[in-house]
Simulated scan of single mutants.
Amino acid sequence: MKIFQSTTHYNYDWEHVSTANWQKYSPWNEKTPHVIAVDTLSRHVDPASGVLRTERLITCEQNCPKWLTAILGGDSKSQVYECSYVDPKSKTLTLCSHNMTYADLLSVRETVVYTPSAHNPESNTQFTQTAKITAFCGGWQKIKNKIEQFTVDRFVENAAKGREGFEMVLERAREVFAQERERMEMSQRA
């Protein structure tokens, strides 16, 4: 098993980030053209804790080597299951996801946590990302290591694009929120 970890900060408060998260795969994000569908499977709020739990299925068009799909079958579409928890009391947004496509050959389990930054909780949000990558190749340790390292390297590239794209979403959300606030203020004055 190989592990990828990354921590960064966004210059937006937690409320802004946790709200904009639902637009992460929208047209506002030019870095996610590979995401072709996001289906919400379930969503509910726990009445005791106030935690919003959402399950989604994310379908992607992957740039998979043709020789691999020829050997394993299937096509270039892959699916990821995501379960998220928004806890407004502790101001924590946690997303847990894992691949469903080729899961018997490669397991990618990702956890993302958004919390107010310890240094500036009023206007910054900390983003922590961890991925555990495990290839299942029987006793072929050398092949297993190469597959896991290739996947980690690809994960590093995609994570950088993902953070860059989410910055676009956050900026666009700021504009939309400002326009909505202005519209509400104008209607209250009228």
Results as ranks from 00 to 15, higher is better:
residue 137 C to Q: 02
residue 21 N to H: 05
residue 71 I to T: 13
residue 133 I to R: 04
residue 25 Y to N: 08
residue 48 A to M: 15
residue 1 M to N: 08
residue 94 T to F: 04
residue 102 Y to H: 15
residue 174 R to T: 09
residue 109 R to V: 13
residue 158 N to P: 11
residue 159 A to G: 11
residue 24 K to W: 03
residue 170 L to V: 03
residue 43 R to Y: 10
residue 66 K to I: 15
residue 125 T to V: 01
residue 10 Y to A: 02
residue 166 F to M: 09
residue 42 S to V: 00
residue 49 S to G: 05
residue 131 A to W: 00
residue 111 T to D: 02
residue 15 E to I: 03
residue 161 K to N: 09
residue 163 R to E: 08
residue 109 R to H: 12
residue 84 S to F: 00
residue 174 R to P: 00
residue 144 K to H: 10
residue 171 E to L: 05
residue 127 F to L: 15
residue 82 E to S: 05
residue 129 Q to I: 06
residue 104 D to L: 06
residue 56 R to Q: 03
residue 68 L to W: 13
residue 115 T to D: 03
residue 27 P to F: 05
residue 174 R to C: 00
residue 167 E to S: 14
residue 98 H to E: 07
residue 69 T to E: 05
residue 30 E to S: 15
residue 84 S to I: 02
residue 88 P to F: 06
residue 148 E to N: 12
residue 102 Y to F: 14
residue 19 T to V: 12
residue 61 E to G: 14
residue 181 R to N: 09
residue 25 Y to C: 04
residue 101 T to S: 11
residue 124 N to K: 13
residue 48 A to H: 12
residue 41 L to Y: 03
residue 166 F to W: 06
residue 19 T to Y: 04
residue 14 W to V: 02
residue 88 P to V: 07
residue 180 E to T: 11
residue 28 W to K: 09
residue 154 R to T: 11
residue 27 P to S: 12
residue 169 V to M: 07
residue 21 N to K: 04
residue 137 C to G: 01
residue 121 P to G: 05
residue 35 V to Y: 00
residue 148 E to P: 07
residue 7 T to G: 00
residue 84 S to T: 01
residue 154 R to C: 14
residue 111 T to I: 00
residue 28 W to N: 13
residue 156 V to W: 10
residue 85 Y to A: 08
residue 153 D to Y: 03
residue 175 E to D: 14
residue 25 Y to W: 07
residue 121 P to Q: 04
residue 89 K to P: 14
residue 139 G to L: 08
residue 143 I to P: 11
residue 83 C to F: 04
residue 92 T to C: 12
residue 127 F to N: 15
residue 146 K to I: 08
residue 105 L to F: 12
residue 149 Q to F: 15
residue 128 T to F: 09
residue 103 A to Q: 11
residue 72 L to R: 03
residue 165 G to H: 01
residue 61 E to C: 09
residue 98 H to M: 01
residue 16 H to W: 05
residue 12 Y to W: 15
residue 68 L to R: 06
residue 21 N to A: 10
residue 12 Y to G: 04
residue 63 N to V: 05
residue 134 T to L: 06
residue 92 T to S: 10
residue 123 S to C: 14
residue 28 W to T: 07
residue 59 T to R: 05
residue 115 T to I: 06
residue 68 L to N: 11
residue 157 E to S: 14
residue 84 S to W: 03
residue 94 T to H: 04
residue 134 T to N: 06
residue 125 T to N: 00
residue 50 G to F: 08
residue 75 D to K: 10
residue 48 A to Q: 15
residue 162 G to I: 08
